[in-house]
Design a protein around this nucleic acid. Structure first.
Lengths: 343, 343
DNA sequence: AGAGTACCAGAAAGCGCTTACGAAAGCGCT
DNA sequence: AGCGCTTTCGTAAGCGCTTTCTGGTACTCT
């Protein structure tokens, strides 16, 4: 936006209201030290004139900014879209603007985005999405975030640990255990797992839960095929095709997120394989569309919108006691896509 | 973020590099007037020290800001999530941060958000989503946006007209005509329309297209039931129930967006009504999940990601020739959810 | 050789706001 | 009346950067 002499300055409303610029500033920001009568008059004049403060000047002078950053892998992914919904909701409530950054599931990009947010002096940063397992990246992200906090910034992460900051952690392990147990309880003994990159902590956790379920049932997990592909619908399709080709005997496919599960459902349908009669399919996340699919998807419910809200609230709250964690439940939701294996 | 004496200032870099602050500024921003050798040295020093410029100071001094705003109804809605993907993509390419604002489909909120973005001195604003038909709101939004443009701001809107600014306009009328013709061609004569609020220009256009198709076929459109509900999956379910109750004779339901169509599909399945054998269903938008539903959804493809990209590009480009429009195609995609009516 | 011409770098004036700090005024008390 | 206290408001000093303007070199041209 070009410089522009026509924009109202605080000085203009101060003059108009017959007070000093300092008084005007205090009146508008609600700071103490000005009588209510004067403050109200100034506010009224400002409203009349249509004055809006320049956030840059304000942030520069005050050293604080009324905006927060949200880092997501991919906003088109319903998982992140729902988290963003939560973050935007409390942002709106608190009068904060939120900057959304894409990582495109690229760890370098993620670091860049965090640095950009720090440069932008946002008041808080919420990092959503699974972290990268790579220790070097972990360390880099951690040190950036720590420096930011040391400089007074607020941080919260969603679904990743080891970063030494406030976190809201979905119970990925418990969720993974729950779905796997469900499938096992139904009698499935030949199943395959479709997953995204195991470089992501989220996936590591979910897999760990699945392994626990096998162990708990006294079954061997090491032989279970785990097919890795993109953590998207397209990835799900690819995984489904590989599973069908390499392990045609499976009676259940457990996808580690719903998007992949949807892709899998789509491939099975195209192949004329009936779900759940011939093959059961389960997902993870409970994106809102999961219940409206045909068949509706058995999955693990993660309260994404809540998690987004909580993360920002956590970041905003007094940073005295740190780091704090909030665990979000991960409850199994049984729907129509799972059933006992064919006899 | 609290004020913080430990943050590096440009002065620090300048001192370290042995130049003046002015030279340092020019070196880092790539402005002319400094020899390449010196500039490179300054950049190197800055990198070494880990200096990042304070955007607020920069924006205040330069009067321009490296950030843009995006106004959407609801980021959880896949339509908007995909548009956001496009906007974020070109934002990242151009080194711009993007602030996303929710309107929650509330016209007052929309105005507030636009004003907030203006106050934030963002470099450009992209307003996505259908506009409100209400002339007072139209006028208010229009005047705000015009004032912003007069002050040097860049604006582009997606899918709404009459705002006198750059626009990328999906061919809602043509798309509406195309799906309706498709249904008519299949032989459907008793159909119902499920739509969101007719207060939105997008919907008005889509309906107009549908009406055109009827007129073109020499059929009467006035008697066709148009059921209005929320423009969401939940709204689709509600609409479906109303249609089933009030017009059980329909052989096709045309939803004016995919989200509603998904809700409709869900209700029909729950009622044991087979799609497309008994009832055909068509949607609008072609959200990415549409092709993976069961049955896959016949719909109108809108290039949402493209539209997002184009909108920001349009806004960013030289504002000399204004306003410009870009029309995005709206092509019928026939899939499995539509078929001739039962005999 | 002297003057004109680039080119480069530094000093300094802001950008519009917040916020010490201090002045002025009103109050109750001795 | 005079003292100190509180409350209210104004003056002015920045916040960290960009950018104009000016001065100083190193050239080239006549």
């Amino acid at each position: 936006m070009e410089r522009n002499r026509t924009t109202l300055r605080l000085q203009d409303v101060a003059t108009e209201a017959g007070v000093s610029i300092a008084t005007a500033s205090r009146s508008l920001s609600g700071a103490p030290g000005v009588s209510e009568a004067v403050a109200e008059r100034v506010r009224e004049v400002a409203r009349q004139m249509g004055y809006v403060a320049n956030v840059h000047a304000r942030s520069l002078a005050a050293g604080t900014s009324r905006s927060v950053g949200l880092v997501v892998h991919e906003i088109g992914d319903p998982y992140f879209a729902e988290i963003a919904t939560g973050v935007l909701r409390v942002g709106a409530r608190e009068g904060l603007t939120v900057q959304i950054c894409h990582t495109g599931r690229d760890s370098e990009r993620e670091l860049d985005q965090i640095r950009m947010l720090v440069a932008n002096r946002v008041g808080a940063i919420v990092v959503a999405g699974s972290g990268f397992v790579d220790p070097a990246l972990q360390a880099a992200a951690k040190s950036d975030l720590q420096a930011y906090r040391a400089a007074g910034g607020r941080v919260a992460v969603i679904g990743r640990h080891h970063l030494g900051v406030d976190a809201v952690l979905p119970d990925n392990v418990g969720g993974g255990r729950a779905v796997a147990e469900h499938l096992l309880d139904l009698g499935h003994r030949r199943m395959a797992i479709a997953t995204g990159s195991r470089q992501l902590t989220t996936i590591v956790d979910r897999l760990a839960g699945v392994a626990e379920a096998f162990a708990g049932a006294g079954l061997d997990f090491s032989g279970v095929p785990v097919v890795e592909a993109e953590f998207t619908r397209a990835g799900g399709k690819l995984a489904a095709e590989r599973i069908l080709a390499d392990h045609p005997e499976v009676t259940a496919v457990l996808a580690l997120n719903d998007d992949m599960a949807i892709g899998i459902l789509s491939v099975l349908r195209a192949r004329g394989i009936r779900v759940p009669e011939q093959v059961s399919v389960a997902g993870f996340d409970d994106v809102t569309v999961a219940q409206d699919l045909a068949p509706s998807l058995t999955t693990v419910r993660l309260p994404m919108v809540d998690m987004g809200e909580q993360a920002l609230e956590l970041a905003l709250r007094d940073p005295a006691v740190r780091p704090r964690r909030r665990v979000a439940g991960a409850d199994l939701v049984v729907r129509d896509s799972t059933a006992p294996p064919p006899a």
